[in-house]
Write a protein that binds this DNA or RNA. Structure first.
Lengths: 199, 199
DNA sequence: TTTTGGTTTAACCATCCGGTTAAACATGGG
DNA sequence: CCCATGTTTAACCGGATGGTTAAACCAAAA
């Protein structure tokens, strides 16, 4: 518990922003969550906008840096793909609200993306390379690999961002049942993707 | 142009809410969009909450009623599936911001869902039936059909809700290129799903 | 012990925003 | 023509909210 005031504020802000977004979050609420006086938020971060950008930038890039790690090891393309799926679901499960947070915020203000892509050295092309290099069976050579990447991401991310809806509609709002379902996902998605690529 | 004041307000509200969400929308902005005095919004809809719920309820159920239509004709299960994919992409293309709107709002306040599911006679089970009945080849009998439905929805919806990010990262922010990509999606998704089901 | 610097606090400010109100306006019936 | 009813408007209200300020606090240097 030797975190500085600034760190406590930042972490509280992160929790609140991820849950409620820029528009839904209140500076007072963040101050309460941090157990600090509201003026301190401005003392350390000057404005809400500033604090938010700081949080968003970190959250966004951390989420993509970890993706990058997955793809840097020296194994076959197929193994990389499998590792990617495992790790990505693990990552989302550890941060279940982050995808919805990112999607919401880039829709609210797509401008921030432009500055973000430069500042953080993110190379999303990497995921494409994974699919381009190495995997060259039937369908892939014909098909734009972006279709596969986006299908893959959709299959992985959608169950998390649409959780309240899906859990209610297809699982009688049973939290645990839905959690079990999400755990099964790894194998199912691997299966679907590999079946398609190798077909 | 013989719409009533109430209709003009409602339609303006629909546009604004879908674009900016409940929290991002301003009553004054809706009034301006409708070309009406702000007090009229309260005259006809009493409160922002009310106006929003009215819009959300309609938008939500219309989006699912149309899905239902797709599935009621008398053709083979496979043809139904193909028709569903076609119609669903058409539906989203005609209302590209609606999925993100719905997802955002149910995450912000999942409670409204409960009341909504009763009031509107929506039967999301229908999509499941489509897959359960009729399609009985290899994988399907073993696999929870909800995995397939959710994969399918993910593949269809994700390219729209994550558009700003994907368009920038994978298409150099070229709007037209991304539109072309979205048009290709129908065939690609059909292909992927059928390949998996029939494998 | 006093001074000096950063840190923390309560009180305050200005603006935004949802909502209200009372008066003006329009229209159709008597 | 006048009244009754529904509609529209400008002005206003109060609370919420992001942000500021000046004073209090505290620890380390001198």
């Amino acid at each position: 518990m030797d975190r500085t005031t600034e760190e406590k504020i930042y972490e509280a802000a992160r929790r609140i922003f991820i849950l409620k977004g820029m528009e839904g979050a209140r500076m007072q609420e963040i101050a309460d969550e941090a157990g600090m006086n509201k003026a301190l938020l401005h003392y350390y971060f000057r404005s809400k906008e500033n604090l938010f950008k700081s949080v968003f930038k970190d959250t966004f890039s951390k989420f993509f840096v970890k993706v990058k790690d997955t793809l840097s090891s020296e194994v076959s393309a197929k193994e990389k793909l499998i590792a990617f799926i495992d790790n990505y679901i693990n990552l989302i499960q550890a941060n279940p609200y982050v995808p919805q947070f990112i999607i919401s915020e880039i829709n609210r203000d797509p401008k921030v993306l432009k500055t973000l892509m430069f500042e953080s050295g993110i190379e999303p092309q990497k995921i494409l390379d994974l699919l381009l290099n190495g995997v060259h069976s039937g369908n892939l050579s014909k098909l734009d690999p972006r279709h596969i990447v986006i299908s893959l991401l959709g299959m992985l991310v959608f169950p998390f961002v649409a959780r309240p809806l899906l859990q209610m509609v297809y699982f009688n709002d049973d939290r645990e049942a839905y959690d079990r379902f999400l755990n099964e996902r790894k194998e199912v998605v691997k299966n679907m993707i590999l079946k398609f690529i190798e077909a």
